[in-house]
Design a protein around this nucleic acid. Structure first.
Lengths: 215, 215
DNA sequence: TCGACGATAGACAGACCTGTCTGTACCGTC
DNA sequence: GACGGTACAGACAGGTCTGTCTATCGTCGA
């Protein structure tokens, strides 16, 4: 077993017994509880109890519950973007890169505890014009830009239109998987994305460009 | 102006100055406030103030806030079903009947105050296993059955699969229209539905059956 | 050795929410 | 004219939520 535990001792006393700072534990608890039960439903007390952190520390670190919610949504955005980009980068063919987004989504559906898109849930009961709406807007803009890029590279005749359609399918699949508790919706969703891509290609010319891109 | 106002006098004193019963006014206020701001966010006091109804009356009529929420969702379900069925019945061709669902959805998007699907919003922060989840499940089951029927009548080779895809598009379009505040998403959504329908037909045989059904 | 600093525990204020209760007013019917 | 049913107004209890504040502890660096 271990010799000396050799504490890393990064910046003064930022870590406790389990090696995670109060900030990290708060963010982890927010991720867990906010996602599982809702941003409005879960109160500060539940968060700090779950994180083993004092209430004063939360307000020192995040300023308010709203600040914690912002950090929670930002971490969700980053994690999702990272996962999707990793799936896309695993392929070379533009067609496969586009469809990889939906395959990554399907894997997500199958994970235990999946309840749908965090931004959808948080936005549903959020006041209009607040930071939740803003964070959701940024996330959706990022997703649409990604789809537009992939659609253009896959040779769509109207990449913006195809991107909007793909986002509709992506959103609808996530919503259905969450509300119906049905991860298998990923398959018809992926098939729908493929059909829409094909329809978009047919319009442009005649052939079926795929491995066209040499580099 | 008017002679005698001639009160209809349906069952004793069910109506007040504006001719609507306390129940109707409560339901109308719930529809307005719950939809605009969220089921969790809006409190009983706001509802009764907006409806001009005493708190005791609300609890006499609905038993609890949960009872009012149930009535609100039921009225949403009925109104939506009625609107969609009316749009479908306006056409004879199976293909047009199917696409009419998406045209009705597009009209809904353009209405002022549209904020997305009420069931999605209510479910987002609702406890799992409660009446909200149940009401949402019933609504979604009804929609899927409708799509399955329409898909079968339109000649889809696999009506259940096409129905799931159409529901994904329908859900995704509603979500995007609500979150992005973009009613124009209805057009690519309708086009996507059409493309999916076409793709589903191609698989079955060769021809393009449409006005096939004689009666 | 000592002070600065981050963190902890927990009481507290103020606001809000649901649901109950009391008392009063109106209306049609007996 | 009395009565029952419905609605109204509003106080109230009990609970929860956010956010503030005080007091204490432990570690790091000077």
């Amino acid at each position: 077993m271990g010799t000396t535990t050799s504490p890393p001792s990064r910046s003064p006393q930022r870590e406790t017994v389990d090696g995670r700072s109060a900030r990290e534990r708060l963010l982890a608890s927010a991720n867990e509880l906010f996602y599982a039960e809702g941003v409005q439903t879960v109160g500060i007390d539940r968060i700090i109890e779950h994180a083993g952190v004092a209430k004063g520390s939360l307000y020192n670190l995040f300023g308010s519950k709203e600040g914690l919610v912002r950090a929670y949504l930002a971490s969700r955005h980053d994690a999702t973007a990272e996962r999707i980009l990793a799936a896309v980068e695993r392929h070379r063919s533009p067609r496969k890169r586009l469809l990889a987004v939906f395959e990554a989504q399907g894997l997500l559906f199958a994970e235990p505890g999946f309840r749908g898109c965090a931004f959808v849930a948080a936005s549903a009961e959020a006041p209009t014009g607040g930071l939740i709406e803003h964070a959701a807007g940024e996330y959706r803009t990022w997703m649409r830009a990604l789809f537009t890029d992939l659609a253009a590279q896959a040779g769509a005749s109207d990449p913006r239109k195809l991107a909007r359609q793909l986002q509709v399918v992506y959103d609808g699949a996530g919503l259905a998987a969450g509300m119906d508790g049905d991860p298998s919706i990923a398959h018809p969703a992926r098939a729908a994305a493929e059909a829409l891509l094909d329809a978009s290609l047919e319009k442009s010319g005649g052939g079926t460009p795929d491995r066209a891109i040499p580099r």
